[in-house]
Design a binder for these strands. Structure first.
Lengths: 350, 350
DNA sequence: CTGAAAGCGCTTACAG
DNA sequence: CTGAAAGCGCTTACAG
């Protein structure tokens, strides 16, 4: 099968009886300002359809134009595509907004090096420049590469707050701190006065924000509330840990991440404890697998993904980009695992 | 902040005191065949490092023709990114192979029209051409657009067998028919002689293949096996249906899709039935959410995704592409829900 | 051994 | 209203 040559603007121009430059103007919606009559535009558009023209984005971006491509990159080892991946929902939001904005998405898979780590410049060149800009996902970051990207003037934004020294990179975040107030109020209203805050080892600034928001919410609560912060990895969240926590007087637990929440669910089962009968639980995160076992705050990951595209677009437009977009609102906790405090005397049920 | 200009080959050339063309040759490992002395190469490489040179991909692909981008498209209403989406695992495989092949992936989100349907040419031009080729996913298809794509000589492949009249489009499929033999053997060996085949309403050719494979496997089984094919939507798979099926003598059920399997799991629970005690069950599909409730065949979706990229690459290279790649092997059923036939007389357990 | 030049397909001043 | 031309940064014959 002989492959017909891919049409370019000059082919359209010939067919429509105009110059290639005129074709370019019509395609780029600059027809009006160049006073190209409607009839000419019409001819050009027909020729375009007839030939099945599509712009060569390499040429467009070489020239400095837009490619209509938004890149997604992560320094994480694995591209965030696994079904129950933490990042998946961000990507869904990014895609939704890309649809709405008429953009296509490039997943920069090629940046993955053989050892699984990801590097923008690892291959020697910045493939990302094919896109008009990029959204960077994930906890991992590579400050050198971020600096270099920034030096090159390549537009990009983060999802999640990331501090890179000396740089003010726009990012999208959720209003984690504000979400703590309804969490604390829900517990206090249910009668809890001693609460454990179960946190994961610090990886992201958002964790700090959440904890500070929690403490601030406790400070303004209607009753005195004692709290203990426990930072531990999932493996340390065992039945024994839960029992010890209860013995020490906590009647409720606020759990920071869905990983910890999963661990806690197992630990409760192992200890024959049921929420909220024996212990009230609120998770500050929702499980991407869905079916959250606990009452939880909804982190608006999808909305954050959408917002990231909008933010990136404004950076690309050269709008004086805000350092960050207004944080996306988290939904207050919903669920069934908050109840009255279990009587302290009650032994763990069988 | 003044933005330092991105270095190009001519900057290196000036610094190294050679011409830009010489720089290009050294960078492309064509130094040897052009007899460029080691000392010159050395100077060039030093200058390159000093300036932090990275080639401009747009320029490279403009010159060379390839963009290094592989497109993914679907005519389905929703782009396959939901966590437990049927297509997700294909996409994961595609991404893996893209990583291995040093390609980036373009998700053609912009092809979605306001009404949710997707069209390649809806916007007037074929955006897909910005990629070197594309993989098309999903049951839905638009024959007109497929024909047009083909007419344009745009390289593309399907995942899953799709018949488009008058066209021989390469596709990747799984060997569904062959997978039926171990399924039937597993049941026959466990003692089952009456089996229900629960199928979804016909949407894809693969369904036909599977059923034919099933019938063929029964025909060559070591014992006479009676089977009944039941085609029904999920909503019709109820406790009553299961009871009726058992009353009619079936001791085992082969369920075609994971949607049906989920419905069946609920129906069994409603009927207070437990597999394999009361009924043996094998699913011909695995649930993307994981945690398949039933013994099941593993459809090698990830491998199919990888294969699709390889197939597409061969089409792009202009290799005389086979109409289809060798079907990817399905893993035989594993799981816990096949046992001896329940005694016919046994009443449903409480 | 090395450089000057063409050309990939576009966009954008600029000149009519 | 429209076209000729420059130039984006590269690779690759081709000429010295």
């Amino acid at each position: 099968m002989t492959r017909p040559r891919i049409p370019r603007q000059s082919d359209i121009a010939r067919l429509a009886g105009v110059s290639q430059a005129t074709v370019s103007m019509v395609l780029n919606d600059r027809a009006a300002e160049n006073r190209i009559p409607e009839s000419t535009q019409q001819r050009i558009r027909e020729a375009m359809t007839e030939l099945g023209y599509a712009p060569n984005i390499a040429a467009q971006s070489l020239r400095g134009g837009r490619s209509g491509l938004i890149g997604v990159h992560t320094f994480e080892r694995v591209f965030p595509t696994a079904p129950d991946d933490y990042y998946r929902e961000f990507l869904n939001g990014i895609e939704e907004q890309a649809v709405d904005s008429g953009l296509d998405l490039v997943l920069f898979a090629s940046t993955q090096k053989p050892d699984g780590t990801r590097s923008i410049y690892g291959s020697g060149s910045n493939r990302m420049r094919l896109a008009d800009g990029a959204i960077i996902l994930g906890f991992e970051k590579n400050d050198d590469e971020i600096h270099r990207l920034s030096d090159e003037g390549f537009p990009f934004v983060f999802i999640g707050r990331r501090e890179v020294e000396g740089l003010d990179i726009p990012f999208v975040t959720a209003d984690y701190a504000a979400a703590m107030e309804p969490v604390v109020r829900t517990l206090v209203d249910a009668g809890h006065r001693t609460v454990t805050y179960l946190a994961a080892p610090l990886r992201a600034l958002a964790q700090q924000e959440r904890l500070e928001g929690f403490e601030a919410a406790i400070a303004v609560a209607e009753h005195d509330v004692t709290y203990r912060v426990e930072v531990r990895p999932e493996a340390d969240v065992t039945a024994d840990w839960v029992r010890a926590m209860r013995r020490s007087g906590s009647t409720a637990i606020v759990v920071e991440t869905f990983d910890l929440a999963r661990a806690l669910a197992s630990a409760l089962a192992d200890a024959n404890l049921v929420a909220p009968r024996d212990l009230s639980v609120i998770s500050l995160d929702d499980d991407p697998r869905g079916g959250g076992a606990f009452s939880h705050v909804r982190v608006p990951r999808r909305a954050m993904g959408r917002r990231a595209v909008e933010l990136l677009l404004s950076v690309i437009e050269g709008v004086d980009a805000p350092t960050f977009a207004a944080p996306v609102h988290c939904e207050p906790p919903t669920g069934e695992t908050v109840g009255a405090p279990a009587p302290a005397a009650l032994a763990p049920s069988a």
